[in-house]
Write a protein that binds this DNA or RNA. Sequence first.
DNA 1: ACATTAATTAGATAATTGCCTAATTATACA
DNA 2: TGTATAATTAGGCAATTATCTAATTAATGT
Lengths: 91, 91
Amino acid sequence: MNLLFKALRDPTRRRILEMLKERDLTVGQISEAFAMTTPSISYHLDLLKHAQLVSARKNGQFVTYSLETTVLDDSLGWILNLIKEKKGKRK
Amino acid sequence: MNLLFKALRDPTRRRILEMLKERDLTVGQISEAFAMTTPSISYHLDLLKHAQLVSARKNGQFVTYSLETTVLDDSLGWILNLIKEKKGKRK
DNA sequence: ACATTAATTAGATAATTGCCTAATTATACA
DNA sequence: TGTATAATTAGGCAATTATCTAATTAATGT
């Protein structure tokens, strides 16, 4: 949960996830969309990978990243629980 | 969305939200549950308040904090959208 | 009025973060 | 085999963050 929220905290990383929602992308393709160097994007992707929010596969010299939603279900559960319990206690 | 995820990033703050899910609490009551000084807790509460995740009301010398779930709905929507769209594209 | 208690504000500091440039690794192609 | 391209790794740095202690504000009880 900690790595997950850490990953979601940064706007650049959230934007990357939104892009990967549409289609799988290579590092270069992602990099183009930001006013930021490729190493910086690489850093963000690594962080997202550690949080298991994305997966990477190598195709020749290219690395393609995909969105992984499993771990998002957990965060959903955590937030939902917070809301649900609260509502259950309303007087 | 930025303030929200910023607030949720920290374990102490997430724990505070979980506590407030059960019942409204004063700063002192929250503080007792952590190995941390009251000013530090006050700092976290301020951050949560800015993210609109909690509200505060003063009762004499005490300040009681409550969980506010409205903004959590937004985060839920954001995450849900990420999952939903992805699933919609599965082949 | 004065001391006590609850909480916030201010100021300092160590750790973490997000970015950069330079160097490296790995694949492709001529 | 050498050069170009894609990506990661390494090293450095400024900004942000989470914590502390000390000081301040505000309400309570004597």
